[in-house]
């Protein structure tokens, strides 16, 4: 038997990039789609929907998380930072390094790569090559910009 899903919407109060937001969505809606469809914050990208590519990486309370696997109901008031909240003018040290090293090709995965790298560097300001690889390996880039991503992270580490 097939049963239509009953009306199932709830209001959630969120803190995104320092601003208070209210959304009225199904509780199981992943933050990825809350950001993209409800709040027009489309810098966070959809890549796989199963936490295997890292394109949707955001920060929840400072930690890198895959927003495609984070239901809005699990956010529980914790602050969220997206790529749009990293800086006003592309001047976060990690963004600056990305520009200096000229990392992007198509650019689609880079917001996720940057958010993941920022979380890594916040926790470990001077990661070894091995630590960079381990931390970044969940973020896929089909264009193959991995070497430049590593260079950019090392550049930030060297300047810190």
């Amino acid at each position: 038997m097939f049963h239509p899903i009953s009306k199932n919407m709830s209001v959630f109060n969120l803190t995104i990039n320092g601003e208070s937001k209210q959304v009225d969505v199904a509780p199981d809606t992943p933050m990825l789609w809350v950001l993209r469809d409800e709040l027009d914050l489309v810098g966070t990208k959809y890549g796989c929907g199963v936490a295997m590519c890292g394109a949707c990486t955001i920060h929840l309370d400072g930690n890198a998380v895959r927003s495609c696997q984070l239901p809005v109901s699990a956010v529980a008031g914790k602050p969220i930072t997206t790529i749009e909240g990293l800086s006003e003018n592309a001047d976060h040290p990690v963004q600056k390094a990305w520009l200096e090293i000229d990392v992007p090709q198509c650019g689609y995965c880079q917001a996720g790569q940057i958010m993941n790298a920022v979380a890594l560097l916040n926790e470990n300001p001077n990661p070894s090559d091995e630590e960079i690889k381990n931390a970044m390996t969940g973020n896929i880039c089909r264009c193959g910009t991995y070497i430049r991503i590593k260079q950019a992270i090392k550049k930030v580490a060297a300047n810190s």
Binding site: L41, V42, G43, T44, T82, I83, E84, L86, S87, N89, A90, Q95, W98, L99, E100, D102, P104, G107, Q110, A111, I114
Partner: peptide, 11 residues
């Protein structure tokens, strides 16, 4: 450098 670099890294 890529002319769209800033737009890409800011999402």
């Amino acid at each position: 450098k890529n002319v769209e670099g800033s737009k890409i890294v800011t999402g």
